[in-house]
Amino acid sequence: MQITTDARGVARVLMNRPEVFNAFNEAMIAELTDAFDQLGQDPAVRVIVLSGQGKAFSAGADIQWMKRAAEATQDWNLADARKFAAMLDGLARCPKPTLAQVHGVALGGGVGLTLACDLAIASSKAQFAVSEARFGILPSVIGPYVVNAVGPRQARRLALTASRIGAQEALQLGLVQQVVEAEALDAAVQTCITELLAGGPQAQAEIKRLMAQLEVGPITPQVRELTAQTIARVRTGDEARDGFAAFLAKQPAPWVPPTSTQD
Rank of each mutant, 00 (worst) to 15 (best):
V176K: 06
I48M: 04
C94R: 00
Q38T: 15
S123M: 02
M28F: 11
Q177H: 11
L39T: 04
Y145S: 02
A116R: 00
K125S: 12
P97H: 04
Q64F: 14
P139W: 00
L158K: 09
M15A: 05
A11K: 06
V47F: 03
A126K: 01
A187Q: 11
R12G: 09
S124D: 12
L50N: 03
A149F: 02
K83P: 10
A69G: 15
E225I: 14
Q127Y: 14
I231Q: 10
A205C: 06
Q178F: 09
V13M: 02
V180F: 02
P218Y: 12
I48Y: 06
V256A: 08
N22D: 05
L226F: 07
Q204K: 02
Q172D: 14
L210D: 07
L185D: 05
R235I: 13
I29S: 05
F57M: 01
F36D: 02
A122G: 05
V147M: 02
R17G: 05
L113H: 00
L160F: 14
A69H: 12
T5S: 10
A35S: 01
A167D: 08
T33Y: 06
D62C: 02
P95C: 02
A187E: 12
R157V: 11
L226M: 04
A228M: 14
Y145C: 02
F24R: 06
I48S: 04
A122V: 07
V130P: 00
L50H: 03
A44D: 12
R82Q: 15
A182M: 11
P258D: 09
F84S: 07
I231C: 11
Q38L: 13
F84T: 10
T114C: 07
I137H: 07
P257I: 03
A184P: 05
M211A: 15
Q262S: 14
T194Y: 10
K125D: 14
R153W: 10
S260V: 10
T4M: 07
L175T: 03
D238C: 11
G109I: 01
F57D: 06
G243H: 03
G109E: 04
S124F: 10
G104S: 04
G174L: 01
A85W: 07
Q229Y: 09
L119C: 13
P97Q: 08
D242T: 14
Q204S: 14
S131M: 10
V256W: 01
L107W: 05
M28G: 07
V49S: 05
F135Y: 13
A126E: 02
L88N: 06
T98R: 00
A106G: 04
F135A: 13
T33H: 09
Q74C: 13
V180L: 01
C192P: 07
R241Q: 14
F84Q: 04
S131P: 11
Q2C: 11
R46E: 03
T98W: 02
V45N: 04
A129G: 00
T261S: 15
E225N: 14
T33L: 08
F247S: 13
R241G: 15
